[in-house]
Computed example of a mutant assay.
Amino acid sequence: MTAKIELHGIESLFSYEGKELFTSRPMHISAEMIQDFCRSVNQMDWFHFDQERAKASPFGAIVAPGMFTMSLLHSVYFDHVELHNMKALFLGTDRFRILKPVKAGDSIVLKFSVDKIEQRKEGIAVHYDFTWTVEGEEQPVTLGNFIVRYWPL
């Protein structure tokens, strides 16, 4: 495992502005992961559960719901980044696009960058950009941005 990026205080985020923060290791997506997510959000469509029918469909396999990759951002971020001497609050997203399905058996990779940082009366607002791709492919699966507010402790 690669060492985590350690961010010590809000000032440390400025060195990443306009730059990539990390590219994740590939994450293998199993049918069980997709189905567990679907059960948790009561999204019970056949193309998330019926392996034989999904295999015969244009998808060729069980597919994840569009918000599946969005739900993984938090855990993958904290697999790669450790925050020190600051508190954070997720503010929301301005953009999220689903460009192609994630299928059971895919291995997906997250590219994560700091688009811009805005000074606030107290603390900063960091605009992150992210792109999920299937390992070995160029076309993104999903992409978007979100904003996190940080304050010093």
Rank of each mutant, 00 (worst) to 15 (best):
S57C: 08
Y16T: 05
D129R: 14
M70S: 10
G136H: 04
S57I: 08
S24R: 01
N42A: 12
E17L: 05
V102D: 01
G123I: 10
K103N: 06
S113Y: 10
L91A: 10
A31D: 11
K4G: 11
D36C: 05
F22I: 03
I34W: 03
I5G: 02
F14W: 15
L143Q: 09
F14I: 03
E17Q: 15
A104Q: 06
G105S: 08
L91C: 07
E135W: 03
S57E: 12
G60M: 12
M70F: 12
P26Y: 02
Y128K: 06
P58E: 08
D129I: 06
K55F: 10
D45T: 08
T69G: 05
M70T: 09
E6W: 06
A104P: 07
D50L: 11
D115G: 11
W46A: 14
W46G: 12
N85W: 08
L143M: 11
L7E: 07
T93K: 02
I124P: 09
K111I: 01
L99W: 00
H28Q: 11
E11S: 15
L89S: 14
H127V: 13
G123K: 08
F130K: 01
S40N: 12
K100Y: 02
E11R: 13
S12N: 08
S24Q: 04
F90S: 12
E6I: 15
P26M: 03
M44H: 13
I117G: 07
F130N: 01
A3F: 05
F90L: 12
L89V: 15
N85H: 14
Q139M: 06
F14H: 14
L110N: 00
P26D: 05
K87H: 12
S30V: 04
D50G: 10
M27I: 15
F130G: 01
D129E: 14
K100V: 00
G105E: 11
C38D: 06
F68K: 01
L83D: 07
Q35I: 08
V141K: 02
F130P: 02
G18D: 10
F130Q: 00
K111R: 14
I108A: 00
I29A: 05
D79R: 11
Q119H: 13
S30W: 04
C38Y: 12
T131K: 00
K19N: 09
I124D: 07
K103M: 10
